[in-house]
């Protein structure tokens, strides 16, 4: 997961000021969108945690776009306003805040997903997963694998999901290559290349 801060403010002084206060955060990119440039142009962002800094009165205009971005990203809206502005709803930055509190707020917001984005602790395949992988590599369909291992198709699917996550290999032929490389399947007496 990458991190992005989108600052959508109509004043150059404000957006530049805010980005210099936020400064450099590890693996975080700051994007300043100044009208008339449109927020919608950033439809390309995926798999990121996004902090969107925006004036509350502008928010309504972009609801559907924020929702769309939210399908492939985690989006956190931070409203920007005058001191004493309505702070009841969600997170906000106001003109009277000092730099450190702003930084802290941004850090907090961007780390929201910390637990989710960290990789699972064990990347080792379990015995059952190895069993499933062997059968996948030998070309068995989920139904057949379920029947052979006396488990439900649903369980097979969840094992396969874990295998893919742990190994970082998504395709069946990729998994087959992995299984052969690691000698998980017996290829004696045949050309292993024909299995791929």
């Amino acid at each position: 997961m990458k991190r992005k801060i989108i600052i959508m403010l109509d004043s150059d002084i404000l957006s530049r000021g805010l980005s210099s206060i936020i400064g450099n955060l590890p693996e975080t990119e700051i994007i300043c969108v100044a009208p008339p440039e449109e927020l919608e142009q950033y439809a390309g962002i995926t798999r990121s945690v996004i902090a969107l800094v925006i004036r509350p009165e502008q928010l309504a205009r972009y609801t559907s776009f924020v929702h769309r971005l939210g399908q492939t990203n985690t989006v956190q809206v931070i409203t920007f306003g005058l001191p004493g502005a309505d702070r009841t709803k969600g997170q906000s930055i106001t003109l009277d805040m000092d730099g450190e509190s702003i930084r802290q707020l941004i850090l907090k917001v961007l780390n929201v997903d910390k637990n989710e984005i960290e990789p699972p602790p064990s990347m080792q395949l379990s015995e059952r997963e190895t069993e499933v992988l062997r059968l996948v590599a030998r070309g068995y369909a989920n139904k057949e694998i379920a029947a052979r291992l006396f488990i439900s198709v649903h369980t097979v699917i969840s094992h396969r999901k874990n295998i893919t996550e742990k190994l970082g290999i998504k395709s069946i032929s990729g998994l087959t290559v992995y299984a052969i490389l690691n000698k998980l399947i017996d290829t004696s007496g045949q050309n292993p290349e024909t299995l791929i």
Partner: peptide, 16 residues
Amino acid sequence: DNKLFDLKNIIIKYLE
């Protein structure tokens, strides 16, 4: 896209 990613990843992570 997935296949190309797999190809890279197999070489990077698993090929001796």
